[in-house]
C-alpha cells in the first residue's frame, strides 16, 4: 500500500478525455484589471455539462513577458468541439474581456493546430472605425472603445488538449478536506498549462454519468456522498466523512500528469485518510493517469 505523509494513495487511475484548448494572454494597465478581466472571462466555466466550456486563470505574466509590456494573465479555455471553441472565444472575449477597462487580448497558442477568427469578427463592433496593424505576420485589430482602443488579435489558435483529469480527497471531516484541497490547488497553480476550472479549483458536487430521471445526463456521485452511506452502494470507508474533488484540464497530458502529482502530494495533509481518482473502468477516456505511477515518479 502506498502512503504519503501517512495518507493512503489508492492504486487507481484518473480517466481523462480529449478536448480542445486555447490560451489567451490578457493584459491591462494594472494587474488588478487583468485579473478582473480574467475572472469575468472564466466565470461560469466550471463544466462543459452546463457552461459550454471549462476555463481558468493559469498564471500571472510579468509586464516584460507580454506583447504590450503591460501586466497580464494567461487564461486557458477548453471545449469539446472546434465549433464550441469558436463560439466560446467570441462570447468570452467579446463580452467579458473587451468590456473590461484597459484590456487587450492576444493569442497564446500561435502554433495551434486550428485557428479561429475572433478579432476578425469582433472588429465589426468598431462600426467601420476599427483599424488593424500587421506586426510580424500577426494582425492586431484596434477597436475604438470609450477608454481608447481595445486591441485584439485577428485569430486565436487552439490545440488538442486534455480535460477531466481528477483526484478525490477523502478526509475525516470537512475542515481537513477543505484545508487539503486548498493546499493542493495552491501547489497546482504553479504548474504551467493547466487550470482547475471549478470554484477555487475544487468541486464538491462530483457527478456520475447516469440518472434515474429521463433527460438528466449527470447526477450526484452517490458512491462518494457520505450522507447516502447505507442507502446506496458506497465507495467510502469507515471514518471518511467528507470528499472533495479536484478536476484538472491541461494543454498537454504531461501538464495534467504533473499537476496531478503535485496536487496529490500537497493534499496529503493531517486529517486526510485517502486519495483516490475517478474513472470509468478505462473504457471511455483516452488518457489515464495512474496515481501510484505519478507519485512514485
Amino acid at each position: 500500500m502506498m502512503r504519503v505523509n501517512g495518507v493512503e494513495i489508492e492504486d487507481t487511475f484518473a480517466e481523462a478525455f480529449g478536448m480542445w484548448g486555447a490560451r489567451l494572454v490578457v493584459t491591462a494597465e494594472t494587474l488588478e484589471w487583468a485579473r478582473t478581466a480574467g475572472a469575468a472571462a472564466t466565470g461560469f466555466a466550471t463544466s462543459i455539462i452546463g457552461c459550454g466550456c471549462e476555463a481558468g486563470i493559469n498564471e500571472l505574466v510579468r509586464a516584460q513577458d507580454t506583447p504590450d509590456d503591460r501586466p497580464g494573465i494567461i487564461v486557458l479555455l477548453f471545449t469539446m468541439s472546434r465549433a464550441a471553441m469558436e463560439q466560446q472565444l467570441m462570447l468570452r472575449i467579446g463580452q467579458t474581456i473587451m468590456t473590461c477597462p484597459t484590456t487587450a487580448c492576444y493569442d497564446g497558442l500561435p502554433d495551434g493546430e486550428e485557428r479561429f477568427k475572433v478579432g476578425g469578427k469582433l472588429r465589426y463592433f468598431g462600426d467601420g472605425f476599427q483599424r488593424s496593424k500587421l506586426l510580424d505576420g500577426r494582425r492586431l485589430w484596434r477597436i475604438p472603445v470609450m477608454d481608447g482602443e481595445f486591441v485584439v488579435e485577428e485569430s486565436f489558435g487552439a490545440a488538442k488538449a486534455v480535460g477531466g483529469g481528477n483526484f478525490f480527497i477523502m478526509a475525516g471531516d470537512l475542515e481537513h478536506a477543505l484545508a487539503a484541497a486548498q493546499a493542493a490547488v495552491a501547489a497546482m497553480r504553479g504548474v504551467p498549462g493547466v487550470v482547475m476550472p471549478f470554484p477555487g479549483g475544487v468541486v464538491r458536487s462530483g457527478s456520475k454519468t447516469s440518472s434515474r430521471y429521463k433527460g438528466q445526463h449527470a447526477s450526484s456521485n452517490t458512491p462518494y456522498c457520505p450522507t447516502l452511506r447505507g442507502f446506496e452502494k458506497s465507495d467510502l470507508r469507515e471514518g471518511e466523512n467528507a470528499v472533495l474533488e479536484i478536476v484538472i484540464d491541461g494543454l498537454t497530458s504531461d501538464a495534467v500528469a504533473e499537476a496531478t502529482r503535485v496536487g496529490v502530494v500537497a493534499a496529503c495533509c493531517d486529517g486526510v485518510l485517502r486519495i483516490s481518482a475517478g474513472n470509468y473502468g478505462g473504457s471511455l477516456g483516452q488518457f489515464k493517469f495512474a496515481l501510484h505511477d505519478l507519485v512514485s515518479a
Partner: peptide, 13 residues
C-alpha cells in the same frame, strides 16, 4: 490624447 496599446506592441517587438 491617449495611450495606444498597439504602440506598445510595436515598440516591444
Amino acid at each position: 490624447t491617449y495611450r495606444p496599446v498597439f504602440m506598445r506592441c510595436y515598440l516591444r517587438r
